[in-house]
Structures are given as C-alpha cells and as structure tokens.
Design a binder for these strands. Structure first.
Lengths: 240, 240
DNA sequence: TAGTGGTCTAGACCACGCT
DNA sequence: GCGTGGTCTAGACCACTAA
C-alpha cells in the first residue's frame, strides 16, 4: 500500500471538489477556519495550508476580517501556464494531427549557435513538423535541441507520443520550468505559402520560443508559424 | 510610525536582497532552515514561510533531502503576468506616447452587448487610442467599459496618467484579477493601413482581451492591433 | 464586543538523499 | 546514520470588520 496523501492535500482536494460540485458556490463564504479544523479533525495550520493553495490556484479569495470566499474565476483548472502545442490546440476544440515530420542532426551555424548558447559547429538536433487537422496544414514548427543533452540515449525517443515535454521528462529527466516567447505577425512569403497552402500575402502568427530547465540551461529553441485563419492563440492570466 | 513588517516578510526581503546582490549565488545552496532560524532569531515556520514565497516567485527551488538552492531564473522580477500596454512597451525599451485619444458613450449593439454581457441599448464607454513612438503610430486600441460601473463618478478620471488599471483601482476601487486574451494575425486592410501608415497587406498582430475583477464581473473588453514591424509581444512563463 | 483571518512559537515525527 | 526539507500540532496574540 502506498502512503496516504498528507492531510493538507486531502483537505485541499475535498474543498476543491465541493466547489466543483456546487456544494460551495461562487461568492459564498467558506466555513471559518475554526469550523474546518473541527470538520476535518486537523490543526489550523493544516487547514490554512490547504486554503493557501486554493487561493494560489484561484479557487478562493480572502476578504480581511470577513472570511474566505469562493472565487468567480473564469480560469478554474484552465490556466495554460505552460502548454505544449498539443494542449493548446485541444483547448480550442481541435485535435492536432501530424502531417509531416523529419528529424536530422545539423551543425550550429552563426545564428543557431548564438540562440542556443553553443560553439559554432556543435551538433544540434533539428525537428521539423507540419501539423494540422484533416490534412489541412495549420502550423510549421522548427525545434532545435543541443545534441549533447541526449548523450548516449536514443533520440527518436523524443518523438514518441504527442508531447515532447513529457518525453523529455520521462526519458531524459529534463523538466522545462521556464519559457520565454516572442509573438508577432508576418506575411507568409514564398516559403510558407507553399507549405501552408495560402497566398504569399496571408498573415501568419509567428512564435519564437526558448525553453529552460530548472538550472537555467536552454533546452529548446523553436520557431513556429500558424495560419491565422485556422488558429487563434488563447491566453488566460491571473494576477498575483 | 507605521507598524514594522511581519518577520516572514523581513526574512523574505533580506534573502531576496542577498540573492540580488550576489551574496547568495545562482546554483548555491542557502543555509539550511535551522541555521536561518538562528540567524534571524525566528521560528522554523517563519523561515519556511519566507522561503515558500521566494520559491513561488522563482528565486529559489528546493531539492528534496539536499537543500534549497538559488534558482537560475531568467525571469527574476520580470514576469509580465499582468501588464498594461505601457508596461509591455517599456519592457521592450520603448516609451509609448499617446498620439490620439477620444472618449465617447455609445449604446450597446448586438455585438458589444454580447461581449460585455449587457442588454442591448445599455450605455458603454468607448475609449479610442492610437499610441506609438516619435509620432510613428504603432498601435490602435478600442476599449469598452460598461458605463454603469462608474455610476456617479467622473469618467475622465479613467484617462489620467499612463495606466488605466491603476486609475480603476484608485478612483473606482476596481481591481483586475483575471484576463483572457486571444491573439492572432490580420492584414491591415483599408481601415488600419491609413491609421498606422502601412500597406493594406501589411501583417498586424491583433489582440482581443477581456478583463475581470475578483467577483467575475467583466470590466473591460478591448481590441488592439499592433504594427508587426514595430512591436513584438514578449511573454515569460514559469511552470507551477 | 465578537468573529474573522494574519502572524508566530516550540516543539514533534517523517521521508528523502547521501555516505 | 545524519542532515535536509515535509508535515503537523496546540496553543498564543494581533489586526481588521461589523454590529
């Protein structure tokens, strides 16, 4: 038997479930901390620890001197704080399909060595993907990883399943904790017009993304473009 | 004299300063919690409360069974989790200037009543702004607020200073806590080509944004477009 | 004044990583 | 086994809100 969850997590999960099931309703006050102590048979510290996480996650908010209320959050469990392509498309009701995918190893040129913080000539894994729905192309993605990160392991492992981020964690024990993105608009031009089956003037949404692990190593640099008539980028944010 | 800050905030701020000043360096272990108790003369709970906030903010991360390390975060104090236009432009090294601004009150039509959750015919405050640098237009912004939110107060107060969000809080006690955004690309077309002084085919970055207060009321609905040759949208995210 | 959450203490026992 | 952080208790006093 696995060990049971800590009390504060049990209390947290129970309260969250009661919110989701409507037992506690939006705008309603939660029972005060003293009552929750008794209800769950735990100390006040434990209750407060549970509440604190639910406030952090946007389920509750506290009104000084009055009580703890259930939030009216529009986000509940829907905060795309760190999402892969697959997850973003799903959040739009699409299912993404892989239309084309290639993988090769290249040498760092002037541009890429700078982006990835490598010496010129160091090896880089380049993954090229065209994705879309019903064989209609929606996005073109170039991802670059320093090859030395995967020393001694099978690189095709990266391509299994849907989520490269899950694979990074599963097979290489690399966890992405920070992302920087720049977003802008471009015209398709000759190159993308052909791949995405749009006119050369068609506006595309362009992303440049850097992903870092906990120790500040740049793990991935990627460039992505989306057909703007088939994709909108959705973002939800909660203020700290 | 104002009351002094709680201990856990003093400890938190002191540790954060020591990180910023290089007294604790990236990748280095912090003294263990017991040592910090003694150093600051507080209980372990207080130390842990301080550390917990610094972990939350990305300054520290914890390695189970080993210790608490200073993060290599690229974000430190730079997390645009909720930024106004002004703040975003500044983060790019620009100073934004107001080139044109009008304000008027309109009646909700079919489209806007739906977006703002109002009845048709209800009054809406419409703020139109063109902003840019050195008289070169960069963005066009349409913001819509339900007029009833400001009953009995002077609406021009909204336009003071640089940040509408600050004014909302200062004069109307409205705090924006959640934002939903959709981002895509469009061609300028006749309307925007003239205003932004670009060709009709020029790609623009388009935003549609909804802002909510703590109680889930929609406070603002806005549509913004940016010249893509003058503006890139920068985003930084930390995984939970 | 009574009720709420905010801060704080001094202990305790446990799980994990290393040696 | 030892040192680290993870969880938990049973109290205490304070600040803010409302009646």
């Amino acid at each position: 038997m696995g060990r049971e969850k800590p009390y504060y997590q049990q209390v947290r999960d129970d309260i969250r479930e009661k919110i989701k099931q409507g037992h506690y309703r939006q705008g309603q006050y939660l029972p005060c901390e003293q009552k929750l102590e008794k209800e769950y048979g735990v100390s006040r510290t434990t209750v407060r620890s549970a509440i604190s996480e639910l406030v952090q996650d946007g389920y509750l908010y506290i009104v000084r001197g009055k009580g703890t209320k259930v939030a009216y959050s529009k986000l509940m469990d829907n905060n795309p704080s760190l999402l892969s392509f697959t997850e973003i498309l799903k959040s739009h009701g699409y299912e993404s399909q892989m239309i084309e995918r290639t993988i090769d190893v290249i040498k760092a040129d002037d541009n890429l060595s700078g982006k990835l913080g490598l010496q010129q000539g160091e090896e880089i894994i380049h993954i090229y993907r065209v994705r879309g729905t019903d064989n209609e192309p929606i996005s073109v993605n170039h991802s670059y990883f320093p090859k030395k990160l995967f020393r001694g392991k099978e690189i095709p492992l990266l391509l299994e399943g849907d989520s490269m981020y899950e694979n990074l964690q599963k097979y290489f024990h690399i966890v992405i904790t920070e992302i920087r993105e720049e977003i802008w608009a471009i015209s398709a031009g000759k190159k993308y017009a052909e791949i995405l089956d749009v006119s050369r003037q068609a506006p595309l949404l362009a992303f440049e993304r850097e992903s870092f692990d906990q120790e500040g190593n740049l793990i991935e640099y990627s460039e992505v473009v989306y057909r703007s008539d088939r994709y909108k980028h959705a973002v939800a944010m909660r203020k700290k």
